[in-house]
Design a protein around this nucleic acid. Structure first.
Lengths: 124, 124
DNA sequence: GAACTATACATGCACTTGCATCTAATGCGT
DNA sequence: ACGCATTAGATGCAAGTGCATGTATAGTTC
């Protein structure tokens, strides 16, 4: 029946919203201790757990669900903080390779336990 | 084992992020047709499906997972659009009752099918 | 190889959000 | 009744985001 499906969908969506909001908010506060935003952490994680510890801006944008412009700025902030470096791509000089620096790896590893603790608290 | 739990948690979180991002983005675009933002729609829905078609600002803030200040501005936008009205609360003159207007109800009902369609597409 | 289209990333701008704070009203203790 | 902490909501401000656009490079067609 249509009505039942409707309320079912809505409550599923609300639950998703609630889990997202609570977890995201808690992550924000937890990561603030390490001077990292949620997006910054996600980008570092994608870079570090990726195959080559480097990636193109556009690829990162897809992975962390941000627009290309937003990701460009996240990378700019991370670079200003010395956590990643931007290098040009030899094969395609329009492209930019984003690489984690040792400081970036260090900061990520420092923050990771707190991030995981929040996930453990709010999920599962 | 710690490692297994960790990757389990992380993939659960990523899945939640992906579902949220995709659905939210689709909702934004769908609701734009009706000149409504996602937050505006949620506030209208909470007001309309609530018991009394009116609510205090703070209560709405909890319901839609926004800060009190953000919700105050959502209500201001809705009021400027003629979709809700703000009335003072007789028993506690600090409080504000937010009420849906006929236009608000109309706009909500107009947008609802599109919103539900997005939910059906991206959830369940 | 010159002109045109498409792609990768950066940036100006508008908008939404949260935090800190402000104002007004309430309640509590004396 | 008076002061003082508390609460409801509004607002200044800084930060992050998306859209539209800009700039540079790549590829494509003739």
């Amino acid at each position: 029946m249509a009505v039942t499906d409707d309320t079912q969908l809505v409550s599923e969506w609300r639950e998703l919203l609630e889990r997202h909001a609570r977890t995201n908010c808690a992550l924000e506060h937890a990561l603030k201790e390490y001077e990292l935003g949620v997006s910054e952490f996600e980008v570092l994680e994608q870079l570090i757990t990726g195959d080559k510890q480097e990636a193109r801006v556009q690829r990162l944008a897809e992975l962390v669900h941000l627009s290309q412009s937003a990701l460009s700025r996240v990378v700019a902030r991370l670079e200003a903080d010395g956590l990643v470096s931007r290098g040009m791509c030899a094969s395609d000089r329009r492209g930019v390779f984003v690489c984690v620096t040792p400081e970036g790896l260090e900061r990520y590893e420092a923050a990771k336990p707190a991030q995981r603790a929040v996930l453990a608290d709010f999920l599962g």
